[in-house]
């Protein structure tokens, strides 16, 4: 009898071992398929009166294209990491779809958000910043760009969308701010909320990698200020050296002073660099104004990094 049970027990152990092995091989075959759909649901907070549907979908850089078509290119340019999509339902008709895009850093999340936000506010104090256009509410928090779509029947109210957004902010780590570098752009003549972050190919050059810009306007003339945040001094030096080679303006490698030179595509560019920052102006003809604006940026950056 004991032997019989032992035999059954052994058979069970073998079966379990087989299943375990199958599972392990399957997981290995799926390569980084964590978290599973059931774990992903933990990203989405419980909402009273709402049922979170089980079918949480996840998209990766390789598959995002098949969810949002050509728009994926823009997200990939901002180092998109993954997207989780879930739907909440209430009484069958009402539906709220939540998309949580995770990017490499908060700056990258801000970058794609800044491409899509409206030109003018009002903006909401949700996460780092958000805006609502019923039935949509979009916001950023940390490295996440969250989109809430309440276009069910009936459509969600602004109050309901905000309730969802606050719960999501809490679930994603709590309130965060905009990238600190943005505060270094002078306010005078700046177009409201024109600040952007370009994650790669800044100014159309691969060697400049990423940069922040803000747009300004004097009468009918627009100009741009920019700040490039390098990883360290050497990184910035390499960037200016490449730029010097392109523009045939070797003086730009000198750290500290303002340099004005001709870029083959952008025309007259003025920039300076120090430590891990490069900052400059495009399309600003008045040299005194250039000096004033760029000096203001330097002051801001030195507050941000006193040992710059």
């Amino acid at each position: 009898m004991m032997l019989h049970f032992k035999g059954i027990a052994n058979a069970r152990v073998h079966r379990l071992a087989f299943l375990w092995a199958t599972g392990v091989f399957f997981w290995a075959g799926c390569a980084s398929l964590t978290p599973s759909g059931r774990d992903q649901a933990a990203l989405f907070p419980r909402m009273e009166g709402w049922k979170l549907l089980d079918d949480v979908r996840t998209y990766t850089p390789e598959t995002l294209y098949e969810y949002i078509n050509g728009a994926a290119v823009g997200y990939l340019a901002y180092d998109f990491q993954e997207l989780h999509v879930a739907e909440y339902r209430r009484k069958k008709q009402a539906s709220v779809l939540v998309e949580i895009y995770r990017h490499l850093t908060p700056a990258h999340a801000f970058g794609i958000y800044s491409q899509e936000r409206p030109r003018e506010g009002p903006f909401l104090d949700i996460g780092a910043q958000g805006y609502c256009e019923v039935p949509l509410l979009n916001f950023i928090v940390g490295e996440h760009y969250v989109k809430i779509n309440g276009a069910g029947d009936p459509p969600a109210s602004e109050t309901l969308l905000e309730t969802f957004s606050h719960a999501l902010v809490a679930a994603l780590g709590g309130k965060t701010g905009l990238p600190p570098v943005l505060a270094c752009f002078p306010e005078e003549l700046r177009l409201p909320d024109s600040e952007m972050f370009v994650a790669r190919n800044f100014l159309g050059y691969g060697f400049l990698h990423s940069g922040y810009t803000a747009e300004y306007r004097i009468d009918d003339q627009y100009f741009k200020l920019f700040i490039i945040e390098g990883t360290d001094r050497q990184d910035c030096q390499q960037m200016v050296e490449s730029y010097a080679e392109l523009t045939q303006y070797p003086e730009v490698v000198e750290e500290g002073p303002l340099h004005t030179f001709t870029d083959p595509y952008h025309g007259e560019v003025t920039l300076a660099w120090k430590g891990n920052y490069i900052w400059g102006a495009l399309d600003l003809a008045d040299s005194q104004e250039r000096s004033r604006y760029l000096s203001s940026i330097e002051t801001g950056l030195s507050k941000l990094q006193p040992d710059m």
């Binding site: 799926c30 398929l33 759909g37 992903q40 079918d55």
Partner: peptide, 14 residues
């Protein structure tokens, strides 16, 4: 697609 695209093994198994 659920398994490799959406990484939702639960939905795929169901």
């Amino acid at each position: 697609m659920y398994t490799y695209g959406h990484r939702n093994l639960g939905a795929a198994q169901d």
